[in-house]
């Protein structure tokens, strides 16, 4: 809804595989509830780290829209 454009290219500076692996590793051994809790903490930390509420709102919007596409 907001006019903020999110980055579509690589913001992970070529280390995407490392980050992805760490993301999965963080969930190892967790049940669904603990995984959901971890994700919630992570989302809050990342949202704050973006330092730009409009980009956070744009990301929420984009994530929701992406999930609706089949």
């Amino acid at each position: 809804m907001s006019g903020t454009e999110l980055r579509r290219g690589d913001g992970l500076r070529g280390r995407g595989d490392d980050v992805y692996e760490a993301l999965l590793a963080a969930h190892h051994g967790l049940d669904d509830r603990s995984s959901a809790a971890l994700n919630a903490r992570l989302i809050l930390l990342l949202a704050n780290e973006l330092d730009d509420p409009d980009r956070v709102l744009a990301a929420i919007e984009l994530a929701r829209r992406a999930g609706a596409v089949r």
Partner: peptide, 20 residues
Amino acid sequence: AAEMAFRDAVLTLAPDHAFA
């Protein structure tokens, strides 16, 4: 469950994070 997860995440982070 999602609302509960975010609420608990806020409460868990609050002691150490001013933003939370």
